[in-house]
Nucleic acid binder design. Structure first.
Length: 177
DNA sequence: CCCTGATTCGC
DNA sequence: GCGAATCAGG
């Protein structure tokens, strides 16, 4: 694989979004994470905070899609906006708005110290034994992805989605993200 | 041991 | 310019 303009643009975009080098490599295909990092340097793109690198949870300066935030840290307004803009069909739109409203309810009632994982937006082929396999979005649409945040135990889901996984669907829907 | 980014250096 | 190998860290 060579670095076509298209692939370079995608690299720039994903890097700016805060995806890790390995995630970007998986999305581009045909390159290793080292290749991605090397290219990032050659392009003189801004690096990630601190030398020695760090896991996704230890990037102090930049807030990225892989960090975790307190539950009440304004995830909702952005999400609500995005969903409203993204959806087109009337029926779907209505459903989404209901979900968003329920989500707001949940968030208000959630204790302050609970953290909600921010999706790493991984594709199926990017999942590992240690990434949350909670599906997000419509499998028939381009933006379908999995939560992908890190998990530590044997559960297929992160702690947040594990709680959802064993609830009745009607209850899950309220907190679905 | 999993992961992260940074750097080096032969190609 | 490219990226595997290696390093250094969480």
């Amino acid at each position: 694989m060579n670095w076509t303009d298209e692939r370079v643009e995608k690299l720039k975009r994903l890097w700016a979004e805060g995806l890790s080098a390995s995630q970007i490599a998986a999305q581009l295909g045909g390159v290793s994470r080292n290749a991605v990092i090397g290219k990032v340097h050659r392009l003189n793109l801004p690096g990630r905070a601190k030398a020695g690198g760090s896991s996704s949870s230890a990037r102090p300066a930049k807030r990225t899609a892989t960090t975790q935030r307190p539950a009440n840290f304004q995830a909702r307004p952005a999400a609500a906006t995005t969903r409203t803009v993204t959806r087109a069909a009337g029926a779907t739109m209505l459903k989404e708005e209901v979900e968003v409203d329920a989500f707001q309810e949940i968030e208000v009632s959630r204790p302050l110290n609970v953290v909600v994982p921010i999706s790493r937006r991984l594709a199926l082929t990017e999942l590992t034994e240690r990434t949350c396999k909670w599906p997000i979005g419509d499998p028939m649409k381009d933006d379908f992805h999995f939560c992908g945040c890190e998990i530590s135990d044997a559960s297929p889901y992160c702690t947040y989605h594990a709680k959802l996984a064993y609830q009745p669907v009607s209850e899950r829907r309220k907190a679905a993200r």
